[in-house]
Write a protein that binds this DNA or RNA. Structure first.
Length: 650
DNA sequence: TACAAGTAAGTTTTT
DNA sequence: CTTACTTGTA
């Protein structure tokens, strides 16, 4: 017997949702597109629909919830649980990449994929490309050849946009067009390298899943039936491959709900295209479209600014946000004399807010680029204002964490040449050449530690080090928890690290302790390693990691990492030409995206919004130069955005 | 020939 | 604070 989804459910939800939200929640079968403005309760709508589906008899395990971060999915499932009980827990939720990871580990064998494949993050990808670049003799030529990060960018972007390499270079790198053949050769070698060694980069996860669904109809049927209801959040930030995956997964039923906001598309650098969301009805003919325009988050003054910002966009958007939260408060544009005064303004205002009883958890400082907050971080530390920073350089990207991970990855996948290289390069007397030669012998072997022992016997000076490594790998072979295995790695690695970084190894040791605490949560090495590649801890490095997560703290975040979040009080710093929009954004499309970024930043605020910029800014090449306010904020009427000038005594 | 150490320069946003 | 390139050394 199925519980009914009749009038009782409708009336139960009707009190809690507005008519548009209710319509989306009650929608059952067939494609649905929800165009949801900022703060219009889109998360709420997703949660209630999730709950409603489960209540009306859909097994939670048949629902697939694709979100931008796994945290977002977990949070939604948790909130649905509050409504319908623990049954909701079985919902499959996560990012496209994490879903692809799990699916390929289970079904990838039909593609000739070993289930212990290793995931390469962007840095790993660049390392491999760099290796191939020099191996192919492209590094040392009269003619400058693109560096590893440019190559990685081109190769990855072409794949994310589902373009030929030639198209990609013609469109975005025309000055490299006569090196197309060499670049294509690198791309091809990179692809072969990965296939031979059980390596998948981020793009492969999506591509190989598409390949599985396209070339193996029986698996497609099976998976499509298993995901009978698909929900995709933040659809405006999907790229063409992801759209194709949705199409393939929904092939047998078309039960897809896509939610997003074209005005908040900010991930084109990853191949996302806001036109994707416009094209959804073409991908799924018969799509029902529901718009959510009432904003429940912000005071009208903040929305007036947001509407004004987006009205300046060249592509016209169809929504105008409105709120019933009227009030006197308006956003404020603050001109500071220089960067440090800007930092002092933010810090002082935070102290005042705290005295007024505003929780630090309700305050965020947002910026375009991670390094924009450096000066502010010092000021906050000086005043003992606790903060955490999101986005930017991550703890997981530090050399010592990557080193420790590489040893574990080699143990999990002995064919992982990229990690072998990293492990071997740590040894004294081993450089790129020696390491590469050893990698070739070691990756083909079933007993790598035996090969290392042979090498040790032959080595002149570093025999002891090789023996130690060999012993480590032997001991990692025994079954143990990830934590125990990490302990073995650290026993071997810590002395090497102290040697290499005599000045700051205590700090690095603390990071590794933090890493141990993370490893403790995992029961299998495989899942630890996948998570570290796909959903690494989002905290940035720094002493702030030491602050107790339960204490109140101000959030410092890049705008990208602030997506989907909200705070009572928001500061946007460095709203100056050259920083925001970023200097590099010079073509029209990039500038449009910067504008949307400003829109996203502003709409994070509920009550108070302060936007600031310094009048004097330091430029490495020119010294001090005049800072001018971001073009997106120029010429706004004072009714929309009043200006305040910080005075001397401040 | 290959490695190590030292010097110079450059930094968007992220799965 | 990293990475890329240059110069010195075994």
């Amino acid at each position: 017997m199925r519980p009914s989804s009749g009038p009782s459910a409708r009336s139960k939800y009707a009190e809690l949702l507005n008519p548009a939200q209710l319509a989306a929640v009650m929608h059952r079968d067939g494609p649905l597109l929800v165009v949801a403005g900022a703060g219009s309760g889109k998360t709420r709508t997703l949660i209630y629909r999730l709950a409603h589906l489960i209540e009306s008899g859909v097994p939670a395990g048949a629902i697939l919830l694709l979100t931008f971060t796994r945290r977002a999915a977990q949070e939604m499932v948790r909130r649905a649980e509050l409504l319908v009980g623990q049954g909701a827990r079985a919902v499959a939720g996560g990012t496209f990449h994490s879903f692809a990871n799990l699916t390929l580990r289970r079904h990838g064998t039909v593609l000739g994929l070993n289930s212990n494949f290793t995931i390469l993050d962007r840095a790993d990808m660049e390392d491999v490309i760099n290796l191939l670049r020099s191996r192919m003799g492209l590094a040392a030529r009269e003619r400058r050849f693109p560096k590893k990060n440019a190559l990685a960018e081109i190769i990855s972007m072409a794949r994310n946009k589902a373009r030929e390499l030639r198209e990609e270079i013609e469109a975005d790198y025309p000055f490299l067009i006569d090196q197309l053949d060499e670049i294509a050769a690198v791309a091809q070698a990179y692809d072969r390298y990965k296939r031979e060694r059980g390596l998948l980069d981020y793009d492969d996860l999506l591509y190989r899943l598409a390949e599985l669904l396209e070339h193996h109809p029986e698996r497609q049927q099976q998976l499509s039936r298993a995901c009978r209801y698909i929900m995709v959040d933040e659809y405006q930030d999907t790229n063409p491959i992801q759209a194709r995956l949705v199409r393939l997964l929904a092939a047998s039923h078309d039960n897809v709900m896509a939610v997003g906001d074209d005005a908040q598309s900010i991930y084109s650098f990853r191949g996302a295209d806001f036109r994707n969301i416009m094209d959804f009805p073409k991908l799924f003919p018969g799509t029902r479209i529901i718009k959510l325009e009432e904003n429940y988050r912000s005071l009208q003054g903040i929305l007036n600014l947001a509407n004004e910002l987006i009205a300046g966009a060249s592509e016209k958007y169809t929504k105008a946000l409105y709120s019933r939260r009227t009030g006197e408060l308006r956003p404020l544009l603050v001109r500071a004399e220089d960067e440090h005064l800007q930092s002092r303004f933010v810090a002082q205002r935070i102290l005042e807010l705290r005295e007024q009883g505003v929780s630090l958890d309700q305050i965020a400082v947002l910026f375009r680029s991670s390094f924009h907050s450096f000066d502010l971080e010092l000021e906050l530390a000086r005043l003992d204002i606790p903060f955490i920073k999101r986005g930017g350089f991550k703890f997981i990207e530090t050399a010592h964490i990557k080193d420790a991970l590489a040893h574990l990855r080699v143990a999990a996948n002995p064919a992982d040449a990229a990690s072998w290289l990293r492990v071997l390069l740590l040894l004294k007397g081993v450089g790129p050449r020696t390491a590469e030669a050893m990698v070739d012998r070691v990756t083909g072997a079933t007993q790598p530690e035996a090969i290392l022992m042979e090498q040790a016997a032959r080595a002149r000076s570093n025999g002891a080090a090789l023996r130690a490594l060999s012993e480590l790998l032997g001991s990692l072979r025994a079954p143990a928890t990830p934590l125990a295995q990490l302990a073995l790695v650290l026993e071997y690695y810590l002395p090497l690290m102290r040697d290499a970084h005599p000045d700051d190894y205590p700090k690095r040791e603390r990071d590794l302790e933090h890493f141990s605490a993370i490893a403790q949560r995992y029961r299998s090495l495989q899942s630890l390693l996948s998570d570290m590649a796909l959903e690494p801890p989002s905290d940035s490095i720094g002493d702030v990691l030491a602050t107790d997560a339960n204490d109140e703290h101000v959030t410092l975040s890049t705008i990208h990492s602030a997506k989907g979040l909200e705070w009572q009080v928001v500061f946007i710093i460095w709203a100056a030409e050259g920083r925001f929009p970023a200097l590099r954004s010079n073509d029209a499309q990039a500038l449009e995206e910067e504008r949307r970024l400003m829109y996203v930043a502003g709409t994070r605020a509920r009550d108070e919004l302060y936007i600031s910029y310094p009048v004097q800014m330091f430029d490495r090449t020119q010294g001090f130069v005049m800072g001018t306010v971001s073009r997106f904020l120029q010429d706004l009427k004072p009714e929309i955005l009043p200006v305040a000038r910080l005075e001397e005594e401040f």
